[in-house]
C-alpha cells in the first residue's frame, strides 16, 4: 500500500466544518428533548392512546391487575361512578377482592384529544355483570387523562359518573 499524501485543509473550510458541527450538535440535542409523541403525527398518538384505553377497559373486565398496574401511574386519581375516590392500590385491591364478575364492557366511540404530553379520552361504556347473584347493567360516562412518562403512556386520572344526560 502506498501512502497517499493528505492535502492541508484550507482555513475557511475548517471554520465552516466547525460551524456545521455546532449546528449538528444543537440539532441532535433538540431532537433528544422533543417529546416522543411529537415525532409522530397527532392522530397516531390519539390512535395509540385509544388502543390503550380499550386495553385498560378489557383488563378491568378480566381483573388483570398486572396489566392495569403497568398502565396506571402510581399517583393515579381514580373516581368511581358513585363519587368515591380511590388510590391506585385501593382500586387494584378492590378489583381483586370484588365478589362480582364483569361479563362485558362495551365502549361506545370515544374521543381523544392530544395536547403534547397529555391525552384526554372521553367516552361512555356499558357494563354488564353479576353481583350478589344478580345481573346488573350500567352506563358510565368517563374522562381519563394519560401522560407520556418515562417512555410510555400511563393513565394519571380516571373519573366516571353513572349520571348520563
Amino acid at each position: 500500500m502506498k501512502d497517499v499524501p493528505i492535502a492541508p485543509i484550507p482555513f475557511f473550510f475548517c471554520r465552516r466544518m466547525k460551524t456545521i458541527a455546532l449546528g449538528l450538535a444543537i440539532l441532535c440535542a433538540s431532537a433528544a428533548t422533543i417529546p416522543a409523541q411529537e415525532t409522530g403525527s397527532g392522530s397516531s398518538v390519539a390512535g395509540k392512546v385509544r388502543e390503550l384505553e380499550l386495553a385498560r377497559l378489557d383488563a378491568q373486565r378480566r381483573k388483570d391487575n398486572r396489566t392495569l398496574d403497568a398502565m396506571l401511574d402510581n399517583a393515579l386519581v381514580w373516581v368511581e361512578p358513585n363519587g368515591v375516590q380511590l388510590t391506585k392500590a385501593d382500586y387494584l385491591a378492590n378489583l381483586r377482592s370484588s365478589e362480582g364478575d364483569i361479563l362485558e364492557i362495551a365502549p361506545a366511540p370515544m374521543t381523544v384529544h392530544v395536547f403534547g404530553d397529555i391525552a384526554i379520552v372521553a367516552g361512555i361504556y356499558r357494563e354488564k355483570g353479576v353481583k350478589g347473584g344478580r345481573l346488573y347493567l350500567q352506563r358510565v360516562r368517563f374522562i381519563d387523562t394519560w401522560t407520556f412518562k418515562d417512555g410510555k403512556w400511563v393513565c394519571i386520572a380516571a373519573a366516571a359518573t353513572s349520571s348520563i344526560s
Binding site: 373516581v79 363519587g83 384529544h113 373519573a159 366516571a160
Partner: peptide, 9 residues
C-alpha cells in the same frame, strides 16, 4: 382542558 364532576352518593 378537561373537567368532570361526579355526583357524590
Amino acid at each position: 382542558v378537561a373537567s368532570m364532576t361526579t355526583a357524590m352518593q
